[in-house]
Design a protein around this nucleic acid. Sequence first.
DNA 1: CAGCATCCAAAAGGATACTG
DNA 2: CAGTATCCTTTTGGATGCTG
Lengths: 132, 132
Amino acid sequence: MAVGPQLQHPGAEGMGDAFHPECVWRDVIDLSSRWTGPILHVLRERPLRFFELQTALEGISDKMLSQTLRTLVRDGLVTRTVEPTTPPRVTYELTTLGHSLADSLAPFIAWVRRHATDVLAARRRHDEPQSG
Amino acid sequence: MAVGPQLQHPGAEGMGDAFHPECVWRDVIDLSSRWTGPILHVLRERPLRFFELQTALEGISDKMLSQTLRTLVRDGLVTRTVEPTTPPRVTYELTTLGHSLADSLAPFIAWVRRHATDVLAARRRHDEPQSG
DNA sequence: CAGCATCCAAAAGGATACTG
DNA sequence: CAGTATCCTTTTGGATGCTG
């Protein structure tokens, strides 16, 4: 997704850097990763420990959870806090930046909740044989 | 991303169907596809022809453009109109549903515009060697 | 509990060539 | 112009086994 200036009408010269490959949103926040969105979303409510995230995100593997969390930490969206107990207790929490991102995703999530059935219905309609 | 009811606090029994695999947003609207978001976004301004989309979306291949558009049409988010001229003139346009989706994505896009530098800076800070 | 390493299967997606 | 078909590389991400 473009992160450049607002799109001029396509075809015009004014496209500017709106859609340069480097500006595609994927390079900034990788929503294309299966779990980035869900993790940001569950962390909105409160900080969570590793195993709590794993529970909340039914089906995520260790690998993907820690991998996605590492990216989020690296990008300044989530903090990782270790209490050096035995066993260790590691807590993940949204930063201010992460919160603002998660908030910006809320309308989209609400849209999916509200319109999932519409999309599914359209898909069914499209796929069913055009019999007379 | 969950499309179920609002998340209860994770770990509680009330998780309901919030994160069932079937409810992950990817199954409803595939934002994880590299081009779904960008296409929806450029179509917000006005209907576009195939080659106009290709121009606006610098770098997209024929294959990915037609493939992504087909999915969008199938899901009732975009209409495809063919004028049977020679050569044919095919126009893509957001449906009402598609517009509401694109609108719901706007805050996220605005966030990326505003905070891309923050993320990039955090990433640089994280990656640079922890020298003294 | 909180992970990392390795291996492997599946999906995404670009390049190229061809069609009505 | 507006695609489709095929090939092939890259990326994603699950499974399994091991560690402090």
